[in-house]
């Protein structure tokens, strides 16, 4: 228990330091652009493929379920759109980025820690929080909502194609099913989630890397711990975040 509280305190202090650098705009902008490219552009294909697959399977399952209940495929667009925009879009994109980017951030910063490269940065007059951590956290938090929106669109379109090919649902019906019940609040519901997921997952990845101990084995353990902690947070935190947003009338 003492260890958990110590880690939590250490994490919050690091997050506070990062926040302070962010608001004083005291961080490396060049590194931020590099990170946006690394996290954003290079992760786009895998995020879009995942989302397309999920959109198609959602359309298929909803269509089959509604046939067995109502004897016809109904409300496929509504289910696919709501599921993706409010839940699966932010969640799946965050999970993909945890695996692709979060683990890489922890491994990179952790390796720098155990090989004294972070100490070297201090001795060369550079604060590693401003040089390494803030650009990664900011990059991650900017990219995750953008990738989520792209994934939502691709998933909904893929669901529409599946509905047409499998159930002969015309695109006009699918679009009206998708948009008729959707409000701007539902869109914000997903967007706010993506931003919060981005902040938490990237700070966990940076924290785990920054406090890595114990050589190559330590880097391995920190990377595993980053992925496990992030995914557990995403799954459990998602419920509480959804409840909070709904109680606030956002979606």
């Amino acid at each position: 228990m003492k260890k958990i509280l110590f880690s939590l305190g250490q994490y919050l202090l690091l997050a506070y330091d990062c926040l302070l650098s962010l608001f004083t705009r005291n961080f490396e902008r060049e590194v931020l652009l590099q990170q946006i490219y690394e996290i954003g552009v290079k992760s786009t294909p895998v995020c879009l493929m995942t989302s397309a697959a999920v959109g198609m399977v959602l359309a298929l399952q909803t269509g089959m379920a509604s046939i067995s209940v109502l004897n016809e495929p109904a409300y496929i667009g509504t289910v696919v759109t709501f599921s993706l925009i409010k839940e699966l879009g932010p969640m799946l994109t965050a999970v993909v980025l945890v695996g692709r980017i979060g683990a890489a951030i922890t491994a990179e910063i952790g390796t720098m820690r155990v090989t004294e490269q972070i100490d070297a940065m201090y001795t060369l007059g550079t604060d590693p929080i401003k040089y390494l951590l803030v650009p990664r956290i900011l990059g991650f938090t900017i990219v995750l909502p953008i990738l989520t929106m792209l994934s939502d669109i691709v998933g909904i379109v893929a669901g529409g194609i599946m509905s047409y090919l499998r159930f002969d649902i015309p695109s006009t019906t699918y679009i009206s099913d998708s948009l008729d019940y959707l409000s701007i609040n539902d869109f914000f519901h997903g967007l706010i989630k993506a931003i919060i997921f981005g902040i938490v997952v990237s700070t966990i990845a940076c924290y785990k890397g920054f406090y890595t101990e114990g050589g190559a084995e330590g880097v391995g353990k920190a990377t595993t711990s980053c992925v496990v902690t992030s995914i557990v947070f995403l799954l459990i935190g998602d419920y509480f975040l959804s409840s909070l947003l709904i109680s606030l009338g956002i979606g």
Binding site: M112, T115, E116, Q117, D119, A120, Y122, T123, G125, D127
Partner: peptide, 17 residues
């Protein structure tokens, strides 16, 4: 941070980036 700028440090394992 300002005091650290007065120092150069050669690390045992070199610690090159």
């Amino acid at each position: 941070h300002n005091v650290q700028k007065k120092f150069g440090y050669l690390f045992q394992g070199s610690a090159l980036f």
